[in-house]
Design a protein around this nucleic acid. Sequence first.
DNA 1: CGCGATATTGAGTGCACTCAACTGCAGTGG
DNA 2: CCACTGCAGTTGAGTGCACTCAATATCGCG
Lengths: 230, 230
Amino acid sequence: MSSNDHLCGCHGSMQSCVSIVPIFNHLQPPQMETIMKAVRTRTFKKGESIYRAGDFSDTLYIVHKGKIKTYRLAESGKEYLVSVLHPGDFSGEYALFSESIHESYAETLEPSEICTIQRKDLQGILEKYPEVALKILGEFSRKLEQSEKQTAYFATERVESRIALYLADLQRQQGERLVKLPMSRKDLAAHLGTTPETVSRKLADLESGGYIRQHSPKKLEILDLDGLLA
Amino acid sequence: MSSNDHLCGCHGSMQSCVSIVPIFNHLQPPQMETIMKAVRTRTFKKGESIYRAGDFSDTLYIVHKGKIKTYRLAESGKEYLVSVLHPGDFSGEYALFSESIHESYAETLEPSEICTIQRKDLQGILEKYPEVALKILGEFSRKLEQSEKQTAYFATERVESRIALYLADLQRQQGERLVKLPMSRKDLAAHLGTTPETVSRKLADLESGGYIRQHSPKKLEILDLDGLLA
DNA sequence: CGCGATATTGAGTGCACTCAACTGCAGTGG
DNA sequence: CCACTGCAGTTGAGTGCACTCAATATCGCG
């Protein structure tokens, strides 16, 4: 509940970086303090690359401020946008426990602050605080479930349903009828396995069907959630 | 290396169940012994259900003998086959750390023996042997990477490429030019997000292109791996 | 206000789907 | 031993969804 912003004057903004992440924020202040010593903060401009496929991977990245996207590139050059990460989300996990070469790219969508922890420091933390490993396991299983569900959508649903399901998810996350899309049509298309043109068309169809209303390209109103999902 | 089959006469075949799983097989015999006490073995006929979507989930399932598939059903009734599990693979992980209701189905493809561990027993094991948690983290990150890659294929590749990539993966796993498909056309289609008819056609195309040779429906020979992937 | 980027709309094409018929093979029983 | 049955797989014909390429409209920002 209470965020002791003044506890650690010397480290300043780095503290909140650790305290906002689900995998750490359950720890006691002294334990957090230990972890904060291993954390480094880096700032990025909009559109900057954080890591690239082929890069050696030995770092966990935690979004502190701003917004980043992770994506993969097919041989053909076609992009699949894996996820958009907001403050408190983290990335780079895979390589921390098995592979050590990135297969995906990460870049900022806005000016951002990213906190980093080196693999060896994290492993020290896991040994010292085994409950962190359990938290990460929980987080992983959530991501795995999500990824599997996403794959199932691709395998079983047509584009219009995928868009509808995406909007419904967004609605559930944000909890308001007015939903804010976190990305452009191009990125949305790359996330849903389609093209910007088709996204435009399907959104227009959903609007004329009375399921949604487009206030601006990134602000949609969900009018009929149940109808949307049918 | 040495499998002490006679160490534990009273439990018989249950021992190997623990000793073949990557997440446990690094442990010392006395530690394995402890885990084996928590393990129960169940036998299934071909095509039997192990768990279903909506079931309460508090069990980890480890394949000992046989072969099982996990799949999801869309509202439409269309099936997405998530994975085929062979001896040593496990399933049911997600719910052990976060959700507690299955979203997928599991059923045997052959007569099988499945070992089960209850959630609370597993949690005890994780507390006692933290290195098991690290093994599971590694296994999770591998699965996550795999699932993400699979989703990327759906988002960026056409059906023929997805089939080719699947065959290439199989070839890599099995290490032989003669590749054995672990499932029927119908299941393969459900795994690749297409239909049995299209699988037939595309395999025929790959054959007439000289990339593969079909000896029988489930036995393929990879003739030109590089060509296959282009 | 003007420019470039982003989004929408339009026309035409092709990949993969559906529905249907046919083939091949394994198991069963006359 | 061979016809019979049923399932798995293949092949064929026709259709439609979503793609590509192109033109136009709109937004955001200096």
